[in-house]
């Protein structure tokens, strides 16, 4: 029974990874065939790095992810602070559920609805091309916000309120006690929110598909365009690079998460 379940588990994982692995291996294929491996080569990587559109979209993706993540983290952390202190329970739960709409709604609806807003506003203001950098920044910040709040708000809720009193007892003004005691306690949540927002932005295709224009391409949009018709082999190289990056990020997040959890467990054990 035990062996059976273990075998089953590893078979499923193998199937889950087979296509990705094949893609990674074939990104180093000398030949241009999907069917047979003819030798090791960095040929497709070379081609990728000569592709200025690819590099541009990589730069766009990165900058967009950085700025939208920072913006979402700033607004989201402040929102979590405000929600934690909010005394009006009705308003609080209303805000929380509205915030979660982009998380519950299918991406396509979020994308389409924002596109309608931007296009309609553009028409009202008489602009010709509303869609682009700015709308992408707004959209990415919007769908990242609930994740930031979700990761910061519990930290505020778990924060031991007597620590705030202890800080004031020892001479902190309310502002000092927030900066010296409360902020360090919520910081792990802020950081994981930031990382989450960053990766979500890098990863997003569906919403970007609707709110961007051909002049502002991100990596997923570029991949989509490249894979729309015939297969391009440099895409294998690109995908491999992305997978490796994500693996590295995931290991970092996991490590950081472990650190926090380990500390909490110890504290729990003491009680």
């Amino acid at each position: 029974m035990k062996t059976l379940s273990r075998v089953y588990m590893w078979v499923i994982f193998a199937l889950l990874y087979a296509p990705i692995l094949v893609l990674v291996i074939f990104s180093f294929n000398k030949g241009g065939s999907l069917a047979s491996y003819t030798g090791f080569s960095f040929k497709w990587y070379g081609e990728l790095f000569r592709d200025s559109v690819a590099l541009d979209s990589l730069k766009n993706s990165f900058l967009l992810a950085v700025f939208s993540a920072l913006l979402a983290t700033l607004i989201g952390t402040l929102a979590a602070l405000g929600l934690d202190r909010m005394r009006n329970k009705m308003l609080k739960s209303a805000v929380e559920s509205v915030t979660n709409i982009p998380m519950m709604n299918p991406d396509i609806v979020t994308g389409v609805s924002m596109m309608l807003l931007f296009v309609a506003f553009g028409a009202i203001l008489g602009l010709r091309d509303t869609l682009g950098k700015a709308t992408m920044l707004i959209a990415h910040t919007t769908f990242s916000l609930p994740y930031v709040i979700l990761s910061v708000l519990p930290r505020f809720k778990q924060f031991d309120k007597t620590l705030r009193e202890a800080a004031q007892d020892l001479g902190c003004t309310p502002m000092q006690s927030f900066l010296k005691v409360e902020l360090p306690a919520i910081l792990p949540g802020v950081l994981s929110g930031l990382v989450m927002a960053f990766t979500l932005s890098l990863d997003d295709f569906v919403i970007s598909h609707f709110v961007s224009s051909p002049d502002f391409q991100t990596l997923p949009l570029y991949i989509y365009n490249q894979t729309a018709h015939n297969v391009k082999y440099s895409m294998y190289a690109l995908c491999t690079l992305i997978i490796v990056t994500i693996l590295a990020l995931l290991l970092v997040i996991n490590f950081a998460g472990d650190f926090g959890k380990g500390k909490k467990r110890k504290e729990g054990a003491k009680k």
Binding site: A79, L83, V95, S113
Partner: peptide, 26 residues
């Protein structure tokens, strides 16, 4: 404090503009 009271305001404005707003347009 002022910070605590005003902290959620940017988010509220953002939510109205970019979550509620788009749905109204749909």
């Amino acid at each position: 404090s002022f910070l605590e009271r005003a902290a959620a305001v940017p988010h509220l404005v953002w939510t109205l503009l970019f979550i509620i707003g788009p749905l109204l347009f749909v």
